[in-house]
Simulated scan of single mutants.
Amino acid sequence: MLVRLYNENPNPRDVRKVVDVLREGGVIVYPTDTVYGLGCDITNQKAVEKVARFKGIQVEKNNFSFICSDFSHLSDYTKPIPNNIFKLIRKNLPGPFTFILNANNNVPRYFKGKKKTVGIRIPDNNIIREIVSELGNPILSSSVHDDDEILEYTTDPELIHEKFAELADIVIDGGFGELIPSTIIDCTSDEPILVRQGKGELEY
Score class of each variant (00 low, 15 high):
K199C: 09
D173V: 08
L140Q: 06
P10T: 10
D148H: 03
R129H: 01
D169M: 13
P108R: 04
Y77W: 00
I81L: 02
K199F: 09
F54N: 05
G177E: 10
F71I: 09
D173A: 08
G26S: 10
I139G: 00
I160K: 08
L22A: 07
E149M: 12
R109V: 11
I127P: 00
E152T: 15
I85V: 13
D41S: 01
G26V: 09
V107H: 10
D190I: 09
K61S: 14
D20C: 06
R13V: 12
C187L: 02
R23N: 01
I28C: 03
E201M: 14
V19Q: 03
L179M: 14
S141Q: 02
K199E: 14
I89K: 09
G39I: 05
K116N: 07
E8T: 12
K114W: 15
I67S: 01
D14Y: 07
H73I: 09
I42P: 00
P82K: 04
A103R: 07
K91F: 07
K50S: 06
T188G: 11
K61Y: 15
P94D: 09
V21F: 00
I185C: 08
N105C: 12
P108K: 02
N62L: 06
T43L: 15
P157N: 05
Q197E: 14
E149A: 12
D169E: 14
T154P: 03
N62P: 03
K116V: 00
G25F: 09
G95F: 14
V27K: 03
L22T: 08
V107N: 08
A52E: 12
E158A: 06
G95A: 14
S69A: 06
N104W: 04
T155R: 12
N92C: 12
L93G: 09
R23P: 01
G175A: 07
D14T: 05
P82L: 05
Y6S: 06
S75L: 12
T183E: 08
K55H: 04
P192W: 11
K91P: 05
G95Y: 08
D148W: 03
L167T: 10
L159I: 01
P80Q: 13
R109S: 14
G25Q: 11
P80L: 08
S65L: 10
V118D: 04
I81Y: 03
T32M: 05
I100P: 01
N137I: 02
D169L: 10
I127R: 02
G37A: 07
P181T: 04
R90G: 02
F99C: 08
G200C: 13
T155I: 15
L194K: 13
D190W: 12
R121I: 04
N62D: 10
L135T: 05
P138S: 01
T183H: 02
D20T: 09
Q58A: 12
K55Q: 07
F66G: 03
D20V: 05
T43P: 05
I172A: 05
G113Y: 05
Y204K: 11
K79W: 09
I42Q: 00
E152K: 15
V48F: 00
I120A: 04
G26H: 12
K55E: 07
L151A: 15
P10C: 13
H73D: 13
Y30N: 06
V59D: 06
T183W: 01
R4H: 03
V195K: 13
S133I: 07
F164W: 02
E162I: 09
F164M: 07
E152Y: 15
A47K: 01
S182L: 06
Y110R: 02
I57M: 10
F164Y: 10
